[in-house]
Design a binder for these strands. Structure first.
Lengths: 109, 109
DNA sequence: CCCGTACTTTGCCACAGGGCTATATAGCTG
DNA sequence: CAGCTATATAGCCCTGTGGCAAAGTACGGG
């Protein structure tokens, strides 16, 4: 699944926010999601799978525990995309400037 | 619908990207979406409705035409959220530093 | 070696939402 | 006003996805 889709779900966003504060186990993430959204552990596990497949998180095994941590890469792409859509005029302002300075109506032949 | 959901769809993202280059009519957006994704006009119109309701775009009437333009606000929020999730250590580096300097293993009683 | 703990996987149901066609609405234009 | 253009709505399928309970897997401890 793609990153945009992955963060479209509030449960998964909440997990990402928690992981942004540091690594945690699947169990802790499931508990948090249970508190905040009233969902069961297997459902939380499903969300973690989506996050894994989107590349937003990685997990390592520690005995029976799975420790999850955030991969900043995809989030950077997301932030990059979003800010690029608003930064059209920055970088074009010089072009606008040139345009305004240009004799484009032929008034001074 | 919420902004995260709104940009989760590739068709809508494509529309946002086009709108980032400047305002356009619903018809032009529909034509673009038709080319790129093979969808029909009513479907494109539905996507525009989602974008409107998410606050990502606004539209004004010009005779029979509807002119759409991007509202940077929601995109800024999106970019802000994403970058905030990766910027944990900036601002926490001092805490890490204190941690490393602290005698937390009791080796010097 | 078996039980408890920690997760994941599986199988199921329900519903949201994306696609389509057909139809409505609104405004030019002849 | 008739009819064309531009866009939105309505109504309908069908797939994807989120939720659950139950079963499977893996590991450590008594």
């Amino acid at each position: 699944m793609d990153v945009f889709q992955a963060v479209a779900d509030p449960v998964r966003r909440s997990m990402v926010e928690r992981l942004a504060r540091g690594e945690v186990t699947a169990g802790e993430l499931a508990d948090l999601a249970a508190e905040r959204f009233g969902i069961r552990q297997p459902t939380a596990s499903k969300h973690l799978k989506v996050l894994r497949e989107s590349g937003l998180v990685t997990s390592t095994v520690d005995a029976q525990r799975r420790v999850y941590r955030l991969d900043p890469g995809p989030l950077d792409e997301l932030a990059g995309w979003a800010s690029r859509q608003t930064s059209f005029w920055t970088g074009r302002l010089d072009a606008l400037e040139r345009h305004l300075e240009t004799d484009h109506d032929g008034s001074t032949p």
